[in-house]
Design a protein around this nucleic acid. Structure first.
Lengths: 208, 208
DNA sequence: AAGATGTTTAACAATATTGTTAATGCAAAG
DNA sequence: CTTTGCATTAACAATATTGTTAAACATCTT
């Protein structure tokens, strides 16, 4: 068997594992189910990844990196005027989550059930974010002095953006039946939600 | 053993089960762990609740009812003027979730992993909500005609309120390290978040 | 006190799930 | 062609977890 096919097997296991872990979490996932979905015997899974834990680690690593990416999408383009910049940030972040809709719930569940692992990462990300906060806060304060926007706490704004964008996807299966026609066309609903989130945040910083 | 103590045992199992299921979910929960936490042999757990499933059902039932309650907290007091009414709604809803911080994540995970069960409930709640939407939308439209507020879609507003309030608690363990000092004093942080959510929503409907 | 009823315990059973191993296959390198 | 090394399989092992049962125990009724 040539190298391409071998890589395929490993890749197929990873793909199946990602699906299984993202939807069911570590506890709900079954290595046999992953193996079956990948089209290999479950011994192969152990051959390539040794244990369920290690296979899970691989997925978690990848997803935590993706998560970091998504956070930094909120920084936006520093060359734009602050309102445009924030608008672009929300859009970029929303679109990112739309492409990875299972990510937030997975990350949160993972952090709740194993906070230790998270400690490693958050220090790194936390420090970078502190710098970004500082810069953005400065820019907002300047714009506020020019009466372009309201003086707001950037961290609070940051949380609000995360809330509005992420909740849409975390709670989609919960809202679907409650909201009815509104969610019938997923694409349409998401577009409306994105616009609503932008409007909500922009109004939050609008000078009255 | 008298009846009071018997009820205690059953009650203790339920309490331990609630804690275990809310934090770890069905898959992560162990009946032996529940039994140990409740201070009984694990055979007792089966004696009272037959299976893990049935014990879980008990908790789910209770929590789904709580969830419904929390949704209706958003209706608010119809006698108040619309802005005051919405302000009160957000407060009531936020406080409710603050008292049941594990509830949203539990419900969402449950719905994702077993959508069937949810179908039964959502029809009932969905219909009631339709009526409420209709009434509230009417009231907002009237207020909009009097130029008191912006004309907004009540369902979108509803989702935004849920997003802002619930995300605070779902993602608290995720934000804690990223936000730093801000979350150091949980009570203070929550109070600030509640105020921020109210401000954000009120600005969303404010006539400009 | 005897019997009936429900409670409790410890030991056991059944099963699902993860992980291992030894034998086999297969492809490339010498 | 044989050796070497990795890939693959099937069968097995180990363990954790849920669930059962029969016997002991307690409590209440008559």
């Amino acid at each position: 068997m040539d190298n391409k096919e071998k890589q395929n097997k490993e890749q197929q296991i990873l793909a199946a594992a990602e699906q299984e872990f993202l939807t069911k979490g570590f506890d709900g996932a079954r290595t046999t189910t992953i193996a079956k979905a990948a089209g290999v015997t479950h011994a192969m899974l152990h051959y390539y990844f040794r244990t369920k834990e290690q296979l899970f680690e691989r997925i978690v690593d990848e997803k935590f990196k993706k998560m970091s990416q998504s956070m930094f999408a909120i920084i936006g383009d520093p060359k734009l005027p602050i309102v445009e910049r924030i608008k672009g940030s929300i859009t970029a972040h929303f679109d990112f989550i739309a492409d990875n809709p299972l990510l937030p719930r997975f990350i949160i569940n993972e952090i709740v059930s194993r906070p230790e692992r998270y400690e490693v990462l958050h220090k790194r990300v936390g420090l970078i974010l502190e710098t970004i906060y500082h810069d953005l806060q400065l820019e907002i304060d300047l714009a506020a002095e020019r009466d372009e926007v309201e003086r707001v706490d950037i961290k609070m704004l940051f949380i609000s953006i995360l809330s509005l964008n992420i909740f849409t996807f975390i709670a989609y299966p919960f809202m679907e039946p409650l909201i009815g026609e509104l969610t019938a066309d997923r694409e349409k609903f998401l577009a409306a939600r994105k616009a609503e989130n932008i409007e909500t945040i922009l109004r939050r910083i609008k000078k009255l």
